[in-house]
Design a protein around this nucleic acid. Structure first.
Lengths: 244, 244
DNA sequence: CGCGGGGTTGAGGTCAATCAATCAATGTGG
DNA sequence: CCACATTGATTGATTGACCTCAACCCCGCG
């Protein structure tokens, strides 16, 4: 087995949010996972679908998205390596949102019936999965607040903090330097802002010395400053470890 | 046992979202539920708390709320009779949001350890509860979209549709006439709008002949018109029955 | 070399916030 | 029973944040 298999990515993540034991890890390793690569802006699942697979993000960035009647897109959450974006599909048959890649991404597919059997036989694993969906919900709550009550500057800082923090906590970045080839349009869809305003807001964050961007790389130069500007408190991410 | 006990309220709700069997119903009826009344604007749980009870809404309206650093409030979801707002507390020890009454309300408290044992011994009940939290998450997703990408008029119509639909599906209102003594300030906090603009938006909906309000009573005069104006599609509520 | 996607910039317009009253309904103490 | 306070709804005037439109630039790519 390779040093970082798809199972390892999943297990590492579950360990950061739940107390998984050796026995559970062994069980998790038996899950057959089909890996597949996707380019950016690819719809993995669409509203109305009735999928029979859930997928774990192995690399890249995935978003859950919804479209309004007049075609505007809203990204309702990000998903990074180790996350299982559509785990709710296990118990909600019809999808109420899309899941799309926001960057080139690698996904691992797991059959619903396999996961359901696992949950049935291993309550601790079921709890870990349930907990994972509950953390997703907590993130949605924070996003409602972010979009509803924070102005563009704070909102942007907040979302950058969340992204960087989450990437860090699964070991995907070092020193607050995130290499995320996400477009400004996608950021706008996540924040409920126009791309033009996203651009200007990023400029302002750079001008204030909080971030630097080189190409698709976002560098949080002043992490304490950024978290302060973004009104960012990690409580809602429900990580075992307090923070960095 | 009275015709509508607190257990009945809970069970009726679970039946609308999951296939609960007779045996499960018998089990659910054994849950000890402590009832208690609250006035409007009362904090039931606060961010940072580590509650040992979950509560089912028996009557009235409850909201999950968050506050930004500069004290602005955002309501991230409504909860009506039969809902268990903080069921996530079962697996997330620290609260990341508050739960407050938005109207005078009656609540039924259930111990976490009782619920956890129940889930452990009755997988179908566990699934029903899990599913309930997943539907909450779906509603959060919709709210992100509503607040992020819809303008005030549509946003308001949408939230009224959701409220009326949910109240109807648990048998709390007839004929699209909702008697909800919710303040315009609370509506603003749910929509990310100022109270002044809430007031003007409601006037516009009245002018368009979509709703009528007499005191705290909201009447959807033109339900098809209101759902159209609100870009409202019931998919995200994951009810068994399609809609009215 | 033309093309397209993504980023950047400027100007003008609009939706919704803010500020500041007013008013109605309800409650309270003297 | 009345003066007074409080809560919530309403209205008008002004301000401001963000959007839209329309360029233009840069760069990778067929």
């Amino acid at each position: 087995m390779p040093p970082t298999s798809s199972s390892d990515t999943l297990i590492r993540k579950l360990q950061t949010i739940s107390d998984i034991r050796e026995a559970d890890i062994a069980v998790l390793k038996t899950i057959p996972i089909q890996e597949k690569d996707f380019s950016a802006s690819h719809d993995l699942v669409r509203e109305g679908d009735r999928p029979v697979y859930s997928f774990v993000v192995l690399d890249g960035l995935v978003g859950s998205t919804k479209y309004t009647g007049d075609g505007k897109r809203q990204i309702t959450s990000f998903f990074v390596a180790g996350d299982i974006p559509d785990l709710h599909g296990l118990h909600l048959s019809v999808m109420d949102c899309n899941f799309s890649t926001l960057t080139p991404a690698r996904m691992g597919f797991m059959r619903h019936d396999v996961l359901r059997n696992l949950c049935y036989q291993h309550p601790r694993i079921a709890t870990a999965f349930w907990r994972s969906t509950l953390i997703d919900a907590a993130i949605y709550r924070e996003w409602v607040t972010n979009v509803g009550r924070r102005e563009a500057y704070t909102r942007m800082a907040h979302i950058l903090c969340e992204l960087i923090f989450r990437l860090k906590s699964v070991g995907r970045i070092q020193d607050h330097v995130a290499d995320i080839p996400i477009t400004q349009a996608a950021l706008g869809d996540a924040l409920g802002l126009s791309t033009v305003h996203v651009n200007r807001t990023l400029q302002e964050l750079r001008r204030e010395g909080l971030i630097a961007t080189t190409g698709s790389r976002v560098h949080a130069i002043d992490w304490p400053g950024l978290t302060h500007a973004g009104d960012f408190d990690t409580t809602y991410l429900h990580q075992g470890n307090p923070a960095a």
